[in-house]
Design a binder for these strands. Sequence first.
DNA 1: CTGAAAGCGCTTACAG
DNA 2: CTGAAAGCGCTTACAG
Lengths: 347, 347
Amino acid sequence: MSSNIYHVAERAGVSASTVSRALRGDRRIPEATRQRVERAASHLNYVPRMAAQVLAGQGYRTLGMVLPHIEGTYYAELAVGFEMRASELDLSVVVLQANHHAAMSGAVRRLVGQCDGLAFLAKSAASDELVAEVARTRPTLTVARTHMPGITSIYAESAGPSQQLTAHLLELGRRRLAFVGPVDPGSDIEARHRGFGRALTAAGLAVPEPITVPMDEPAGRALARQLVEEDLPYDALVCGNDEIAVALVHELQELGVAVPDDVAVVGWDDIRVSRYLRPGLTTVAQPLTELGGLAAEHLHQLLQGQPVPEKTVLDTVLVHRQSCGCITANHPPLQQRSNHSKGARTP
Amino acid sequence: MSSNIYHVAERAGVSASTVSRALRGDRRIPEATRQRVERAASHLNYVPRMAAQVLAGQGYRTLGMVLPHIEGTYYAELAVGFEMRASELDLSVVVLQANHHAAMSGAVRRLVGQCDGLAFLAKSAASDELVAEVARTRPTLTVARTHMPGITSIYAESAGPSQQLTAHLLELGRRRLAFVGPVDPGSDIEARHRGFGRALTAAGLAVPEPITVPMDEPAGRALARQLVEEDLPYDALVCGNDEIAVALVHELQELGVAVPDDVAVVGWDDIRVSRYLRPGLTTVAQPLTELGGLAAEHLHQLLQGQPVPEKTVLDTVLVHRQSCGCITANHPPLQQRSNHSKGARTP
DNA sequence: CTGAAAGCGCTTACAG
DNA sequence: CTGAAAGCGCTTACAG
């Protein structure tokens, strides 16, 4: 097997205590001794076993991150932000993808035994009950997930920007609007639908039933075909995310429908495809990296026994491109940021 | 503090040994006892500390995954495949994003002390020396990274498909070709450039200097502007990845250049944008999820002491869309798969 | 079927 | 400045 602290101690001619102190940068160890120990350690390829350190009272210095089966950039960006900040704080990250997971609670429990604190990112297979159970054992928070009373959460606003975006479409003269996405109670999508409804109500219009389809590419293409068959009963579609919005636009175009002239389409998330689509997709950008980073940060604080706000709500940014009809129609965009996102430089 | 095995033992009226056995499913424990123990455990919210289990000889049952700062879907897909397979094999995954990391070797060393085996995905900040050092301590392999003698590696072929793709452009009548990407020695990109060169040589053409720019969106847009200024000296561009290819195409179009008529562009990776671009980007799809999954699988085998092949090379798939000029020009695609990818259903 | 005891590899008061 | 020793929370031969 590989070497342990006693091997290093022997080779350096000191005790294990001294090796431990030297390697952890204890100021009491003189430079010469420290160097001797370090040479011995490196010669033996010695790496302290984290398990032993943990057991000796160091804590795992590790954060758990539970997220849905990652696909597309959305979860990846959250995860990136989380890991980067954790890494800066000298914390490791254990990941667990929680969908497709028959034995969810077993897997999460295992994760709990392996870290000091956990973040549940977005709506994953982990149920509210499971999250609550974990929260009883360890510092726990949710990110981009519905707030649960008593559990720290971090997310971006949904209802407000959605209302704003819908009002924007109304201002542009659209009247037959529909919301696309599964409006599950307590979800982000429900909040976006709520904003959508508020805008319509404020304009004196009835709120139609949402088109509840899964928010992915196949569903988007299928919906496009269905709408064309039905002779395009809407002049604006507010989608729950960009993934379905881009598929919808692309397929509508294949079928000869003009976007935004025949129908405007807007999404949510500002995924990368959205700015390559023609017309560019008008959408709402969430500060995903920041959400992830903040999660790591707050967990770190909780680990130190410092308090954090129970709810942290970040702002989103409306990204105006052409699919809402606003730029072609020569309406002023609601905000300055048009067609810019993370280094994009479309003129 | 949270409860430990002795608390559970006390509450269930048995010894710690029995608790341990019951919870691990030891067949010698009668059902009634097992249930009593389980009730006590769940009542106390007991979760075994992994650190203690590891120290008692169980191994970490955890894999380390080192990857470059994830961005876009490429690394995400590798990571997803890895985590999913690991999870199926009942292994946890600790992630470390290795770029941007001043203290690379420290971070990796820490990771080593925290898992049983490691995978280095793609070219990350971890140097070959660091990988070799780790390999001396733990089962280690590289994925989508240049093969290092003596170290298990898994990757998809590069030179062959690149040569094929380049030959395809030549067959379509293109004569002024260029390769776009940083041709670092030992990298995948170098291999792709090699295939590019072979095709040209086989056609009796000279191999031009590669256009060595970073393979990202800003570089792609900048290159487009530069090429237009130079009056478009090429009629086909073979790009090192899709990220720069899509930016290049999009920006060229903004500047009034027709793709593929004025210039054909092909990429590598089949990222999601590629099939939404108009014209769709002809590219090479790597089996990323499979690469990641195989990595977890092989690591698992190595952990069990079973041998795995030192090199595993997976096939890629040429994805023919319109940016190469092949479909518009009514040439038969090299392979059947055209415009299909992971559930895409463009007619 | 079950328990007492040793041992995994560290860290850290404690004593010098 | 340094070492001997206890202890962290488990698992598992060993003995019954």
